[in-house]
């Protein structure tokens, strides 16, 4: 394919979609097809990979297992990734109780995201929370975990706020995106609307250091308003109305 006309190039520059790739008869040209396969291969590998134990150790995290004994079981049955293994419960018994902020790294659907961005994010988040003099819990890592594992951990450790940093489902464009789910006083009866979310944390989205500041600010707001998720949004909206009146 020759270079696109300037007016078209201007439009194409605005989207990551696979456009102006040409065709071989009605099919994808070889190069475009093989690029697609390479991107899907990377995404599949990211889903199936495990976070190496050495990485967990280097980050100083206490590792917890879930009821999912394998990656395959984890992918098929979401319930397993929301339930702690018996070994995890005894480990939790030795962790700090009732901290102000509990940090949990969860592999979720992308070990690659944890390996790529959790080190920078945790270091920056540690600095931000330290500057704000927050009492931190024992930092944790959950292998084969889902977001709602933070409710189980909340039930066991009773933090004021729990922040779970979770590997997102890999796409073809990026396989290393993390999300932070922040919840005020999580319990076993917590639901999805109770969580505040900062998503798309990776080099092409919100950079990890910038994300750390946003997360720390969000934790401040949760602690100030004693709420998170939809309840926090409602309180902030009510506050804005009151100050506007």
């Amino acid at each position: 394919m020759s270079a696109p006309a300037p007016a078209l190039a201007k439009l194409l520059a605005r989207t990551p979609a696979r456009l102006a790739i040409g065709r071989s008869g009605p099919r994808l040209p070889t190069a475009a097809y093989l690029r697609f396969l390479a991107d899907h291969g990377r995404a599949r590998d990211a889903v199936l990979a495990e976070v190496p134990a050495a990485v967990v150790k280097k980050l100083g995290l206490v590792e917890l297992a879930t009821a999912a004994a394998s990656r395959a079981a984890y992918l098929r049955e979401p319930r397993l990734g929301r339930t702690l293994a018996a070994s995890a419960r005894s480990r939790l018994a030795r962790c700090r109780k009732r901290p102000e902020v509990q940090l949990v790294v969860v592999d979720g659907l992308s070990a690659a995201a944890v390996v790529a961005h959790a080190p920078t994010l945790l270091r920056a988040l540690g600095r931000e929370l330290g500057r704000r003099r927050r009492r931190l819990g024992t930092p944790l890592f959950v292998r084969n975990g889902r977001v709602r594992i933070q409710d189980e951990i909340g039930h066991a450790l009773r933090p004021e706020v729990c922040c779970a940093i979770v590997g997102e489902r890999p796409g073809l464009a990026t396989t290393t995106s993390l999300s932070a789910y922040v919840i005020y006083r999580p319990t076993r009866s917590s639901a999805e609307p109770d969580r505040s979310l900062i998503a798309n944390i990776h080099d092409g989205g919100i950079a990890p250091t910038a994300a750390a500041r946003r997360i720390a600010d969000l934790i401040d707001t949760c602690l100030e308003h004693h709420a998170s998720g939809a309840a926090l949004a409602a309180r902030l909206a009510a506050g804005a109305d009151a100050s506007g009146a």
């Binding site: 979609a17 696979r18 456009l19 697609f36 073809l172």
Partner: peptide
């Protein structure tokens, strides 16, 4: 969808081709 890669929903489907 362009080359079957939906860059918003993050899944793959059938392409224009």
């Amino acid at each position: 969808v362009p080359a079957g890669d939906d860059v918003m929903l993050g899944y793959q489907t059938t392409s224009y081709h």
